[in-house]
């Protein structure tokens, strides 16, 4: 269960103060799929970063599993990102020096992974339809393929929460449907909670609940 309380983030650019996330509060139940839609620049990515512990809010709190993540130290917060939560970024997020497979298992380099990783990584690559691209480098993959590798990586740590920023942005309708099926499957089988930012009304429509973001404010859609 995720509780976002009064979250605020402002940026000052050239003396101009803009409230990118403006006193946002909402709750996500465990196993919920919630979508966020909103215009470009409305603060969606910033909001996800605040929830995922990537940027510090000016005020407010993000409480996950009863703990305020912004009250944790670096090791605690990093461990939380490593084991509890995964990001799917809006833009390419693979490490160029590593192969597709290595990118997928990368999170294990930063945490205590006792479970089997290799087989699971292959399984995930198969699931996103790239089992045969294991040894390809990002530069040898298309944008959509890179995106699918990033999606496979997001599941390697068996997270409880996935924060996905336009996860199907550069995928065709068919692949988008497959990815959505994967999300739903993970949601059903493991009760993974999803917070999806999307422009796609198709994807947004499949969420259990929709939020709308506008000028830093979040409201029910």
């Amino acid at each position: 269960m995720i509780e976002i309380k009064d979250l605020t983030k402002t940026y000052t650019v050239g003396g101009q103060v803009s409230k990118v996330v403006d006193h946002v509060s909402f709750k996500l139940a465990k196993g919920e799929i919630v979508s966020i839609i909103g215009h470009s620049g409305s603060g969606k990515t910033t909001l996800l970063s605040l929830i995922g512990g990537l940027t510090k809010p000016d005020s407010g709190s993000v409480i996950i599993g009863g703990k305020d993540i912004w009250a944790m130290d670096d090791a605690g917060l990093s461990g939380f990102r490593n084991r509890m939560l995964s990001f799917i970024f809006q833009f390419s997020s693979l490490i160029p020096t590593l192969t597709a497979f290595e990118n997928v298992v990368l999170p294990a380099a930063f945490g205590d992974y006792k479970e089997e990783i290799t087989g699971y990584a292959k399984e995930l690559l198969d699931t996103v339809g790239l089992g045969d691209k294991m040894n390809s480098f990002p530069s040898q993959l298309s944008g959509g393929q890179q995106r699918r590798i990033a999606i496979a990586r997001a599941f390697i740590n068996r997270p409880e929460i996935i924060l996905a920023d336009e996860p199907t942005g550069d995928l065709d309708e068919e692949t988008e449907a497959e990815i959505m099926a994967l999300f739903k499957n993970m949601n059903r089988e493991r009760e993974v909670t999803f917070l999806l930012v999307t422009h796609s009304s198709e994807l947004a429509g499949q969420a259990g609940r929709q939020l709308r973001m506008s000028s830093g404010l979040v409201s029910a859609a």
């Binding site: 995922g52 990537l54 670096d74 090791a75 990093s78 461990g79 939380f80 990102r81 490593n82 084991r83 990001f87 970024f89 997020s93 490490i95 160029p96 990368l106 999170p107 380099a109 930063f110 945490g111 990586r153 740590n157």
Partner: peptide
């Protein structure tokens, strides 16, 4: 960017 991504995957400052 890469370093930031590693952090997002759970790399600590120490890593």
């Amino acid at each position: 960017r890469e370093l930031g991504l590693l952090r997002a995957m759970g790399a600590r400052k120490g890593h």
